[in-house]
Design a binder for these strands. Structure first.
Length: 151
DNA sequence: GCCAACGTTGGC
DNA sequence: GCCAACGTTGGC
């Protein structure tokens, strides 16, 4: 089983949305590096839910990969914000996964706190200027983060 | 709202 | 294939 961290803007799709829906498609990833990670995800993998572009960016909860990578349907829909005219049913470009809500933490584990953990120095999230929207988390990194999550 | 950092696009 | 211009991300 592998571990991941996945970013989303809470005004677009936050942990509360996932909590309400229980299972949701993680769509809209339009970056090849991130897409390739999506394709590596396996059912049962665990992922931290990270809120970005908000007042207190940080880890807010836990989810599980429910369904492995399949064609992100939004790429085909010309009326959708995530539409990609260069993609087609014959040659789809983008992948989504289904994620299942597991829990919401009592407090946000803020980016500032994460940056203060020396064990996370190699995590792309804490590096300056990083824009990768989802990334693998090593076993050791996971343990360190998990120990700080208020449950 | 600002803007640095980054990825993508497209002319050449 | 280079690289300037452009658009986007995301912390602050």
């Amino acid at each position: 089983m592998a571990y991941w961290l996945m970013k989303s803007e809470p005004t677009v799709f936050g942990i509360e949305h996932l909590q309400q829906r229980d299972v949701a498609l993680w769509d809209g990833v339009r970056n090849y590096q991130a897409r390739n990670f999506l394709r590596q995800m396996k059912k049962g993998d665990m992922a931290f839910f990270y809120h970005s572009n908000c007042k207190v960016p940080g880890i807010v909860g836990l989810m599980m990969i429910e369904r492995e990578g399949y064609d992100d349907p939004t790429q085909f829909d010309p009326h959708h914000a995530y539409f990609d005219p260069k993609s087609s049913l014959a040659k789809p470009r983008w992948t989504g996964v289904d994620v299942r809500f597991v829990e919401k933490f009592q407090d946000t584990l803020s980016l500032n706190t994460l940056r203060a953990m020396p064990e996370l120095a190699d995590l792309p999230l804490v590096r300056q200027g990083n824009r990768l929207s989802l990334m693998p988390v090593s076993d050791q990194q996971w343990q360190v983060i998990w120990a700080h999550c208020k449950r």
